[in-house]
Nucleic acid binder design. Structure first.
Length: 576
DNA sequence: GTAGGGTTAG
């Protein structure tokens, strides 16, 4: 019987919720389970959906004088505590460890460090690390490294990394993941480069993470480099890795490559479907995204919250208002998914753009969660597009009250007044902004060339080829003028003259990046730009014209979507 | 016969 139990208890960790139930039902028939059976059961429960049961079984064992926990028991039960985030249970176990004299056991020590780390108790984690330093091994160091990385104390993590007596690939992985999750994307990529120079072979976690970093930054060349490193290092193409590649290509503008990799997959998980659906949506391929979603559900699979962010976005990009309403209903009523801020963002954007501002307002006012400033901003944007001055004014005031330091709100409100030709109000709001606001997000655009990242801000003169770039800008201006272009200065509302306004637009960061792009590429080549903010109407028009005049496709990833400019047209159909 | 550290999507 004991033999049967152990076989069950160590069977695949919780492939179905009933696995642990079944094991437990057999375990409970034992009158006096031995230590091995009990440990196996605790392990099985720790890996199940109900780790609290693992803790409960441990407690009953602890009270049983005939079968006391041993050194194997603690790593299992601590794993359960970590999964539970059991800040009450974990320290109890820690006490038992001390009382039973297991503090010098390196496995238990490492489990404790990890437990405190995932519970965010970095001091306790450090304390366990510092005790019995002679009982540390490489895993101990990796665990404390991960603790600081999780806590976003990257300076300390970096320092520890330097002090480690030895490093393995998991040490590198922990540091790289720490950088990327802590938003230090460039540092993560530097670290990846460094380990490759040292001749170390990256593992799956590292590849997934650096692909995510490349994707977030929109660095196609770098992403491709990672892809080829994966091929040469003969790494196994797992589902998460293929999914990370699909996401990277989509976020770096190569939606075709992304789709091809998706179609070639023999097995997919919900992440694979999600990144593909979201990717198609941000490229304005709403119809394809919705087709994919339908295929997904027809396969009998269950969408999750993120799936619907993609679906609702797809409806928004394609202007499918009725479908958007229906999918929102499907999500909440059929799948029982609670809408999150992102879902509201999509649906409010969709309704607002299509002119159903009142309906969008109703939705926001009846939300189950507290709307955030971004959501109110979306609604305010809709007021601007549809000239709803009165409501816009009300919302603008509210928004400025909520978040008085944010310049964007003042600008939006001023734009609404400008559209209504209420110039005195425009001036008033802009003065208010100068007095009270100051949180302006600095706009930038970047372009990759010859493996280097070139980042520009408005009016940038820092680039080493600045002179050539500005000469190119003149060439562009001349050819644009020949093609009949005259700048639309309405988005620039500063109290300045027309000529200055023209100049302010002329040196928008994307223009500089495109000028540089034209210098370093050939006719027929694609110019890829990534920018953090949304592209303004004038630059959008200019991009369309440049794509035609210079016979080069331009792909711009802006703060919320992709624009593919080709022979004078944009994939967004001027709807963004 | 049982044990510890790193991974992806809005």
């Amino acid at each position: 019987m004991a033999h049967l139990l152990s076989a069950l208890a160590i069977s695949p960790p919780d492939s179905s919720p009933s696995t642990s139930q079944y094991s437990l039902s057999i375990f409970q028939r034992f009158e006096n389970p031995n230590i091995f059976a009990s440990n196996s059961m605790i392990r099985c429960l720790a890996k199940s959906q109900t780790p609290q049961n693992s803790f409960l079984l441990y407690k009953s064992m602890h009270q049983n004088v005939y079968c006391q926990p041993n050194n194997y028991t603690f790593p299992f039960v601590l794993q359960a505590c970590s999964k539970l985030l059991g800040t009450r249970e974990g320290p109890q176990i820690h006490n038992h460890v001390v009382k039973l004299g297991f503090t010098k056991d390196v496995y238990i020590k490492n489990s404790l460090i990890n437990f405190y780390s995932v519970c965010g108790q970095i001091q306790s984690s450090r304390q366990v690390f510092d005790e019995n330093p002679q009982c540390s091994d490489i895993v101990t160091w990796n665990a404390i490294l991960a603790s600081y990385a999780r806590d976003k104390q990257l300076d300390i993590a970096e320092q520890l990394f330097g002090e480690m007596p030895e490093k393995d690939v998991i040490s590198w992985s922990t540091l790289i993941v720490g950088y990327v999750q802590g938003g230090k994307l460039e540092k993560g990529l530097d670290c990846f480069r460094e380990m490759k120079v040292k001749g170390l072979i990256p593992n799956e976690a590292i590849f997934v993470t650096v692909l995510s970093a490349s994707a977030q930054m929109g660095l196609l060349e770098h992403g491709k480099l990672v892809h080829s490193t994966m091929k040469t290092s003969n790494c196994r193409m797992t589902v998460p890795l293929r999914t990370a590649l699909i996401d990277m290509y989509a976020k770096c503008g190569c939606i075709e490559m992304s789709r091809q990799l998706f179609d070639e997959m023999r097995q997919r998980d919900v992440w694979s479907w999600n990144v593909m659906i979201c990717g198609l949506a941000t490229h304005g391929l709403g119809k394809e995204a919705l087709e994919l979603f339908e295929r997904f559900t027809k396969e009998g699979r269950r969408p999750v919250n993120v799936t619907f962010v993609g679906v609702l976005n797809a409806c928004g990009r394609a202007g499918l208002v009725n479908e958007g309403r229906q999918y929102f209903k499907l999500m909440t009523e059929v799948y029982g998914i609670e809408p999150e801020m992102e879902h509201y963002g999509c649906i409010v954007d969709l309704l607002g753009r299509a002119g159903f501002v009142e309906e969008a307002l109703q939705l926001v006012e009846n939300m189950t969660i507290q709307p955030d400033p971004v959501l109110w901003g979306t609604l305010l944007g809709a007021c601007k597009v549809h000239g709803q001055v009165e409501l816009g004014e009300k919302l603008g005031r509210k928004l400025i009250e909520m978040d008085p330091k944010h310049d964007g709100h003042y600008v939006l409100l001023a734009n609404i007044y400008a559209k209504a030709r209420k110039w005195e109000d425009v001036v008033r709001v802009r003065r208010l902004m100068v007095d009270r606001g100051n949180n302006k997000i600095a706009g930038w655009s970047l372009i990759e060339a010859q493996g280097e990242v070139h980042r520009f801000i408005v009016g940038d003169r820092e680039h080493k080829h600045s002179l050539e770039i500005y000469k190119m800008l003149n060439v562009i201006d001349r050819r644009l003028a020949e093609a009949g272009y005259s700048p639309d200065v309405s988005p620039v509302l500063h109290d300045i003259g027309k000529e200055e306004k023209e100049n302010a637009i002329r040196v928008h960061s994307e223009r500089l990046a495109i000028a540089f792009g034209l210098l370093v590429t050939q006719v027929g080549d694609c110019i890829r730009i990534v920018k953090n903010l949304r592209v303004c109407e004038d630059c959008h028009l200019v991009c369309k014209m440049i794509s035609k005049i210079f016979e080069q496709e331009i792909i711009v990833r802006d703060g919320s979507r992709f624009h593919h400019f080709k022979v004078g047209n944009c994939s967004c159909h001027d709807y963004w």
